[in-house]
Simulated assay, not measured.
Amino acid sequence: MTTTTSPAVTRRINPTTWNAPFRFDHAQLRPAPSRILSIAGQASVDADGNVLHEGDMSAQISLAMHNIEEILESAGMTLADVHMLTVYTTDVPATLAAYSALTERLEAADATPPAALVGVTALALPGLAVEIAAQAGR
């Protein structure tokens, strides 16, 4: 079991290592944040709510993560402040095949938030294949 502590006093808890390529920790024990940001599911939509990149899982993941990063920035936070990601998808195998669109952003921020990948039958708008919700705190 590996447990590490960052300068921010976050204790990373990983009883196994298979999760490392997916850029998530099994658990993190953090000090109580003074601010908590709850981010509703973000998807591959433009400013008017129109679905973009239908049929392109990698592009949908990338735009959803971009939208999350914009919200984080507006709150004075980064991906390093995310303490939970939930990825909802209509196609788990395709999401896993395109998962580097998510892990590259997490790696650039040196972030390994606990995460869940959840298969669903449909999302809010026709053409969406992935939606990502997040919790952050600082």
Rank of each mutant, 00 (worst) to 15 (best):
A133L: 04
S100F: 14
P113R: 11
E104V: 09
I68H: 00
A108E: 11
E131Q: 15
A111S: 13
T121N: 14
T90P: 02
T90S: 05
L123S: 00
A101Y: 09
V87P: 07
T86C: 12
E104L: 04
L106W: 09
L79E: 07
I68Y: 02
Y99C: 08
A111Q: 02
G127F: 02
A75D: 14
V120D: 00
L85K: 01
P126I: 09
A101P: 10
V118K: 03
E70C: 11
D81C: 14
A108Y: 14
P113S: 04
T121L: 11
R105M: 00
T86W: 06
P93H: 14
M84E: 14
D91V: 05
S100N: 14
T90F: 00
V120P: 03
L123Q: 03
T121I: 14
A134E: 01
A80N: 12
T95F: 07
A124H: 09
E107T: 10
L117E: 11
E131F: 10
V87C: 06
V92F: 13
D110N: 11
V130N: 01
I132S: 04
V120H: 04
T78L: 07
R105L: 13
G127S: 03
D81H: 15
R105Q: 10
I71Q: 04
V87K: 07
A75C: 12
A98L: 06
A116F: 06
A129D: 09
D81T: 11
A98V: 12
T121M: 13
P126L: 08
T95M: 12
A94F: 03
T95G: 00
A133N: 11
L96E: 08
E70R: 15
S74V: 10
L125Q: 12
I68P: 03
A116S: 12
A109C: 00
L123E: 01
E69W: 07
G76I: 09
L85W: 04
E73Q: 15
A97P: 05
Y99H: 14
D81N: 15
E70H: 13
I132C: 11
T95C: 08
